[in-house]
């Protein structure tokens, strides 16, 4: 397996977005691309990342291989890459180590690292294509701000989606608060738009702590899509652009 990405910053941001949720993960390499699925230790949330082969500058994978990686170790290695460096990842069939090569844009600096891989026996969940009752698209900076603002008030947030608005409500020890967003009527910048697609109104409760973990993915995408159905896990998607892939989080709801 060998693959090269023009910008190391993409992998750095992906790692920042998952390393507080997951400690070890298998990076699954196949001819289709690079993917990862992992749950947090309490099995309340799941992260699913896909980087399509066509999004890489070069991608070669003769046989599917899983690279078991400790994310804290990978973070240490990626700290040595400049944001604008290209990154080449290599692994052989034995799968006991992975090689990372960082090259500066001017090609006058080349650094190489080798990472020992681990055997990770991870449980994979089959996540079927789901038709959600409510889909909300909003700026990822707005999502991050709401989670961080409401997170200081309480532990859970009630998300209510109607045709007219999406409302985030918190009820905590010191009092309560809410933020309500209405779909944008004037579209100045596509990245500032709030869009709601509704089959039926949804009203659900989630842990703010996890929503805040997911907000770490905001630097990956200008917009975020929240998909909800009654008594079903919330899906939060950050797309890296149409061709590249996505980072999705799933969060089990709090129910009676």
């Amino acid at each position: 397996f060998e693959a090269r990405l023009t910008q190391a910053s993409l992998i750095k941001k992906i790692l920042e977005a998952i390393k507080d949720l997951v400690t070890d993960a298998n990076f699954d390499c196949s001819p289709e691309g690079l993917s990862l699925q992992a749950m947090d230790s309490s099995h309340v949330s799941l992260v699913s990342m896909v980087l399509h082969a066509q999004g890489f500058e070069m991608f070669r994978c003769q046989r599917a291989v899983s690279l078991g990686i400790n994310l804290a170790s990978l973070t240490k290695i990626l700290k040595c890459a400049g944001n604008d460096d290209s990154i080449t990842l290599r692994a052989d069939e034995k799968g006991d180590k992975a090689e990372f090569v960082f090259e500066s844009q001017s090609q006058d600096r080349l650094s190489e690292f080798e990472l020992k891989l681990m055997d990770i026996d991870s449980e994979h969940l089959g996540i079927p294509d789901t038709k959600y009752s409510a889909i909300v698209e909003m700026p990822s900076s707005e999502y991050r701000r709401i989670c961080s603002d409401l997170g200081v008030m309480g532990d859970t947030v009630r998300i209510s989606v109607s045709k007219e608005s999406v409302k985030f409500q918190v009820d905590g020890d010191i009092g309560k608060g809410s933020v309500c967003l209405h779909p944008s009527s004037v579209v100045d910048k596509p990245t500032e738009v709030v869009k709601i697609s509704l089959e039926e109104p949804v009203d659900m409760i989630f842990s703010i702590r996890y929503l805040n973990y997911f907000a770490k993915a905001a630097p990956l995408s200008d917009t975020v899509t929240l998909s909800l159905s009654k008594d079903f896990p919330l899906q939060i998607e950050f797309k890296f652009g149409e061709q590249m892939g996505y980072l999705r989080y799933y969060l089990a709801p709090k129910i009676d």
């Binding site: 749950m39 099995h43 799941l46 969940l125 842990s207 896990p233 089990a252 709090k254 129910i255």
Partner: peptide
Amino acid sequence: NKHQTTLEKYYDGH
């Protein structure tokens, strides 16, 4: 009172 469910309740493992 609400309680936190886990994902296995909704998705099959394989």
